[in-house]
């Protein structure tokens, strides 16, 4: 598995998510599409970290643990944070969708257009 292929995979996943966000009309499906975009990013982050690790070690075999954290693990740390923040985002999203549903009895975003004239 080369880095290139993993990056293509991540771009494909990201694009599928973006396509879903732009075409779907159901707010929950749109949240799922956003989740897909975040997952595409996560794949890329981990792949980058995996690629950078050996190269940094090759350049500097005596790299200290601080240096390793700073350069090597950033991608993996990023992916952990993305997962956590995405969870927060979705929970807030669902909460807001529930208030929309209570007010409107629908979560179809084409019908949620009180203000667009």
């Amino acid at each position: 598995m080369t880095l290139e292929r993993v990056l293509i995979l991540s771009a494909v996943v990201f694009s599928i998510g973006l396509y879903g966000f732009l075409t779907k009309r159901n707010a929950i499906t749109m949240l799922m599409a956003i989740e897909l975009m975040f997952n595409g990013v996560t794949i890329a982050a981990v792949a980058m970290a995996r690629y950078i690790t050996p190269s940094v070690l090759r350049v500097d075999p005596t790299a200290t643990s601080d240096g390793l954290v700073q350069f090597v693990l950033s991608g993996q740390v990023l992916s952990m944070f993305v997962i956590a923040v995405a969870a927060a985002e979705v929970s807030l999203g669902i909460a807001i969708i529930i208030t929309v549903y209570r007010a409107r009895r629908t979560i179809d975003v084409t019908e949620v257009n009180l203000m667009r004239r």
Partner: peptide, 26 residues
């Protein structure tokens, strides 16, 4: 609630773009 939904969805998509850019820069 409509304003909240719109803000949340678009903010989430924009942060996905932001993140992808950050990962590429990284």
């Amino acid at each position: 609630s409509e304003a909240g939904l719109k803000f949340l969805l678009l903010a989430a998509v924009s942060s996905a773009f932001l993140l992808y850019g950050m990962v590429l820069v990284y």
